[in-house]
Design a protein around this nucleic acid. Structure first.
Length: 104
DNA sequence: GGCTTGACGCTTA
DNA sequence: GTAAGCGCCAAGC
């Protein structure tokens, strides 16, 4: 496991319930503003054994963007809704409201 | 060391 | 507002 992936997991673990962050934001917090793809790759590499709330990481527009067959967008939406994150008719969250800026 | 793939993002048309 | 293209970074082969 590379330092970058480890840093990604550590950062995601810091995301409090009811808040979400974009791949680009996580990358930016790690010092790589353009490494959104790298963040996505790291999360896609997550195994069964982990305590990383990956569902709190969504696309830059506040919309869920998944590619993994093991996880459906509906599941991620359900997990977020369970934490108090509301979705609008377009399937997007109240970005300005639930966006985590890196502070506890 | 170089090419390909992928949970992304921004710019331009 | 939607669609397509280019650029970004990390990991696997």
């Amino acid at each position: 496991m590379s330092d970058f992936s480890q840093a990604v997991y550590a950062m995601v673990r810091r995301v409090p319930p009811g808040r979400v962050v974009s791949y680009g934001d996580v990358a930016a917090l790690l010092g790589r503003p353009r490494a959104a793809r790298g963040v996505g790759w790291a999360l896609s590499a997550l195994g069964e054994e982990h305590d990383v709330p990956w569902w709190r990481v969504i696309g830059g527009r506040g919309e869920i963007t998944l590619r993994s067959p093991d996880v459906s967008p509906a599941l991620q939406r359900a997990l977020l809704e369970a934490e108090g994150v509301e979705f609008d008719a377009a399937g997007r969250v109240d970005w300005a409201k639930v966006r985590w800026d890196g502070e506890s």
